[in-house]
């Protein structure tokens, strides 16, 4: 599968990563290499083999539905930066984590 420079830019946009023209070209080479490896793997005959969803052949352990977590908001929010407007204000006052304004 051949990738184009437009594909790289679209993927970068979806991942919210800023990529310059030069980086895009370099990334294109790298990703094309990875896809080449995948193409090589896809050439292997896997007829009749059940896809493996996990490397260990065990099943999920289940947890009882009992509240075990207590409120740690204060501790967690000590490490939460309130970005934007150059403010160093912590988010604790309103209890919310703050992020730059998102409007869809």
């Amino acid at each position: 599968m051949a990738l184009s420079i437009e594909d790289i830019k679209k993927i970068a946009h979806l991942a919210r990563i800023e990529v310059s023209e030069g980086e895009a070209a370099a990334t294109l080479t790298k990703l094309t290499g990875i896809l080449g490896l995948i193409e090589q793997m896809q050439a292997v005959n896997t007829e009749g083999i059940v896809p493996m969803s996990h490397s260990q052949d065990v099943v999920q352990r289940l947890r009882e539905d009992v509240v075990t977590k207590t409120n740690q908001r204060e501790a967690f929010q000590k490490i939460a930066p309130a970005l934007g407007n150059g403010s160093t204000e912590r988010a604790v006052d309103c209890g919310l984590y703050l992020v730059p304004k998102v409007i869809e």
Binding site: A82, C94, G95, L96, Y97, L98
Partner: peptide
């Protein structure tokens, strides 16, 4: 949940 308007210019996140 995103909460808009609680803090000026920011979006608040309630997890």
């Amino acid at each position: 949940k995103s909460v808009h308007g609680a803090v000026e210019g920011m979006s608040g996140i309630d997890l």
